[in-house]
Amino acid sequence: MSDGPEKTVFEERLQAAEDAASGPKRRKAGKSDAGSAQRAIELAMRLGVEMVAAMVIAVVIGWGLDRLLHTKPWLMILMVPVGLAAGLRNLLRAERGK
């Protein structure tokens, strides 16, 4: 009789503890706010650099090939749109999380 309310209090606390323990799993599904905020910050940190990096690599490759082949500046100019496309590819891939 007397252990009735005590038991429910214990079960509530157990439930709360279980919910807290399974927090990371729910976050993995991307449902909770904390998870989506974390993912948003992660993406914000990544996206700008991803785009610039592809551009830089493409231009450096074009510039190097120009020096080797004495075709200044045509390959570098050719590589700019390719680098832009690679940057966009990076963005799409980062946004999909893969």
């Binding site: 990544r46 610039v52 990096a53 592809a54 830089v56 496309a85 690679a86 590819r89």
Partner: peptide
Amino acid sequence: IEFISYLSRPVSLSV
């Protein structure tokens, strides 16, 4: 495009 996207990984990672 895929190749440059792949090569840009160490750059974006380090920068």
